[in-house]
Write a protein that binds this DNA or RNA. Structure first.
Lengths: 367, 367
DNA sequence: AATTGGTTCTGAACCGTTACGGTCCTTTCA
DNA sequence: TGAAAGGACCGTAACGGTTCAGAACCAATT
């Protein structure tokens, strides 16, 4: 129809009004409040709009006037590819997108390139609010978001006290998982965790680095482990903890290898994510170690692939987390005090954890 | 720092300028063109900005003035959940997001709720362009996008002639896959395809519905099959083709069941996606049919899980598709004639296709 | 005839910013 | 010493809408 009409000067509300001999208000009403003008006039407005190739009120101008952008921004993990390959992140994204769809709101993925510390993208985002998902707590993008005068919900982040928050009890959940392993008799363990800070550090982690970790989630999971095993009499400072920057099964495998090289006697390998755990299981198999007979392996998240593998893990409601974040943001009605939502997790005892080889639970009194 | 400063009246560029006794332009320059004013003044501007709690130039007002939104819109499949659970869609999203990140552009997910035909979300999206991914060609949202005076790239969509397009040769790729099966000796086949239109039709598909399918991709894949098998002397109108609205392995399984119930003698089950094919394999196993000995199963897409299962399929570069779409959109420099990009696909012959049971290739001359 | 009430449409005031085309003042250089 | 160049800053005019308090009109009521 009206395809190449916008050659000379793209029609505007004003030009349309002039053409019709009515006021701009009337044209605006024709689009936004049909009950405010007679049906005939409205039809006439819409018809000439089509004739002139007027595409309807400009969204940006409207946003400026109404002070509503009709979108929320999502500040994602720095490296997009890792986000889109992490099942947990995708689940979160889905939940958030669903909440947005319900509210008829757009969802703007804000680029947060870590290399050029380009905070401009945050400043340039025309949104009514932000959701921040699992970024390091010293990320400049996060700081930039907090400076924007819009409601914000942080996810998997420490409670900032000033903005809404949704997350889980990472520390408690991991503590519980650790108790499970301790109950089985494990005392000599190794850990593979995701990256703890913005810098790449593929290798062993000192207790200092654990405490200072900038990723809230990882810090708390490690801390839950440390607490439980310390209580069980294990000297945490002697437990090999290996960090991997990249989050994929290959990292899980190489991390597991590094731990096992250091101490081949460990009876349990605890990973802070299912993806890492799946990689660790590959590495165990490569070494001829049977899971769980020779070694137990655990994960965290409760992703589909882990479930299929019978992984012992902590299931967290990733989709619900996204949805909760969206809801929290979208009904930020009154300036109530910041809300903090903790979602429930569930310890899943699968087929990858058992008593240690030769341990009490599996001692074999055979001939 | 300046947290609850915006109680009275959120500071603006103008108020800041007034406070400082300089012009608005100067304040604007302090943020956007630091070289246009002396460092001292700039510092003074920025300092008082902080003091007054001025968060920097309003993105929406800036967008209005510069006529750049700094974001591109993505019109996704109607049902968000299915999109986020389809590995191919996620790959596309990743590629697109990467292209956007490279360009420092945001990516706005535009809600396209199919129930309420709410095209307003498209009108309300403040974007510099649109990418349309695999929607039915009669989708009102698509029509609304095409009315917007911004560059657009359609994906997995018929060539509209008026906007850029990126896709693959679905028809040719499926023709090639069909040739592979024909070469193995298959003549009695069944098909499970994704939904062909906006209405739900879980069941057999008439040839009419195949031709009239509103999903370009599915239409062409079926058409490639029909052509190849017709050439091989198969009466296509007798081939059982089953459609499934939902796109998941459960649908693949139930679709396969429906086909096999109709004709238990088929030697090959062709699915128009890997996800469906994986479900079909489950159903085959459930019936005690060995793949490929008793029945061949093929997919389309080349997703990871299919690869691990050794699925015979057509691999398409989903990530590259997204990236290509982004690039096309982001350097829509001159009003050149609309571009059309076809990406290469690759026929992957896996372990799920073989000659038909008792067929020439596998005739068993046993003892 | 004046009042009331209900539609329908208008005027003008914003929304917060940047583009554009200056002016003014200080250096620099022949 | 006068002209040219350049740096620093300013005023105005958009950018394209929405909104609210009326105005104009007409019919019905008092």
């Amino acid at each position: 129809m009206a395809r190449s009409m916008h050659v000379r000067r793209p029609a505007t509300l004003a030009s349309l009004a002039a053409e019709l001999g009515v006021s701009r208000t009337t044209v605006s009403n024709a689009y936004n409040r049909p009950d405010q003008l007679s049906p005939e006039l409205r039809r006439r407005v819409l018809d000439t709009a089509r004739r002139l190739g007027y595409p309807g009120p400009d969204p940006v101008a409207r946003s400026l006037r109404t002070r509503k952008a009709g979108a929320v921004g999502l500040l994602l993990t720095e490296n997009l590819s890792y986000a889109f390959r992490d099942p947990a992140a995708i689940g979160f994204l889905e939940g958030l997108a669903l909440a947005c769809e319900d509210a008829g709101t757009g969802l703007l993925l804000v680029p947060a390139n870590p290399e050029r510390e380009d905070v401009a993208s945050v400043h340039r985002a025309g949104v009514d609010g932000f959701v921040v998902y699992s970024v390091p707590d010293d990320d400049p993008h996060l700081a930039a978001v907090l400076e924007r005068p819009v409601p914000t919900v942080v996810c998997d982040q420490p409670d900032l006290g000033t903005v809404d928050r949704v997350g889980i009890d990472d520390r408690g959940a991991m503590y519980e998982l650790a108790q499970h392993l301790i109950g089985l008799g494990h005392r000599r363990i190794g850990v593979v965790c995701m990256r703890l800070a913005r810098d790449r550090n593929d290798g062993f982690v000192t207790p200092d680095r654990q405490h200072a970790a900038h990723f809230h989630v990882q810090r708390n999971r490690l801390s839950g482990l440390a607490e439980a095993f310390s209580e069980a009499g294990v000297d945490w400072s002697q437990v090999p903890v290996v960090e991997r920057f990249d989050h994929n099964t290959a990292s899980g495998a190489s991390g597991a290898a590094q731990v096992l090289d250091r101490d081949p006697q460990i009876t349990a390998l605890i990973c802070t994510s299912d993806v890492l755990a799946l990689g660790a299981m590959t590495e165990a198999a490569r070494r001829g170690l049977r899971v769980p007979h020779d070694i137990s392996v655990t994960g965290f998240d409760g992703i589909r692939a882990g479930e299929e593998a019978g992984l012992t893990t902590v299931r967290q409601p990733v989709l619900e987390k996204g949805r909760a974040a969206g809801k929290l943001l979208l009904d930020a009605n009154e300036r109530s005090r910041p809300r903090s939502v903790n979602l429930a997790t569930e310890l899943i005892i699968g087929k990858t954890s058992a008593g240690p080889r030769g341990g009490a639970e599996e001692r074999w009194f055979g001939p």
